[in-house]
Nucleic acid binder design. Structure first.
Lengths: 148, 148
DNA sequence: TATTTCTCTTGCAATATGCAAGCATATGGC
DNA sequence: GCCATATGCTTGCATATTGCAAGAGAAATA
């Protein structure tokens, strides 16, 4: 048995988003892949929140189905797999960062430095461009290492 | 028995957000309260997604605990309850609308009109201000009706 | 006073999650 | 080539969450 998944949760934009990545584990995977340069199954598994293996496999598969992640055999080592963020994933960066700025403001135990929200407010476009460039760098690095 | 809730899901901004409203029903409640002018239990219950009564009560209670919703006896009718969006909720508007624009772009069955994403891209600040004004209007209306 | 509206609560079956173990494929050392 | 290891999953099972139907309690309405 398996996945009915986003069974007709299309149409309404909020519902589409909720059905596509609207659960805590998808959120954290998006964070890891968009902001922390994580790409492999074990990268995600080692995040401090401690996702379990079956849930991780399920969420990666859903995000791949939704064209948010692009699953490829790791060019550096064929026993490994890379999940690359697609353009569709990258286009969530502004909202994701906006949410993080919100958390930084309202979570009294936030660990985010003051400078993060400050930089974003000073120049959001530049801040997002910086994160996009980081993503490019991580992906390029993987393929350049493979050629050696 | 009841709610341990966001047990130490603080610190990391993404994790804080995921723990606070990171599930599909919270998403939809936020949509209803921020964008559709819904305020009462039965308003939320009547949304087309069909949330069940126990889940709705649970999520409203969590969002109230998180200071995202402000629960008050309805000034128009004391047997009813209003859930008003707080400043903390309103501050999610930009990200929520950003996510909706994303869905509008990527959901091939989107029901959102082209004009929505277009207006946002042309002037995001103005678009958000418009939604904020709508929220003010809905809340003011409730209290003005109560005085009659 | 009786009925209806409205916001929940409760009981129970179905589904999803978390955990530990195991499996499959590829790699790397001999 | 052969075996140990690394990596990405799958499976089984206990526990937790959800969904559904019914109903309780407080206030409005007739």
């Amino acid at each position: 048995m398996a996945k009915p998944r986003t069974l007709n949760w299309q149409g309404c934009p909020t519902r589409y988003a909720a059905g596509t990545f609207g659960d805590k584990w998808c959120f954290l995977i998006l964070r890891d892949v968009l902001l922390h340069g994580k790409r492999t199954y074990s990268d995600f598994l080692n995040s401090p929140e401690g996702i379990s293996t079956n849930i991780l496999a399920d969420r990666l598969s859903r995000l791949e189905d939704a064209a948010i992640l692009d699953r490829q055999v790791d060019p550096r080592k064929a026993s490994r797999v890379c999940y690359f963020p697609t353009r569709k994933a990258r286009d969530l960066l502004p909202s994701l960062i906006g949410i993080m700025v919100w958390s930084t403001q309202y979570d009294e135990h936030t660990e985010a430095p003051e400078s993060f929200a400050k930089a974003y407010r000073a120049d959001p476009v530049e801040t997002i461009a910086w994160y996009e460039a980081q993503i490019d760098r991580v992906d390029a690095e993987i393929f350049s290492e493979a050629e050696q």
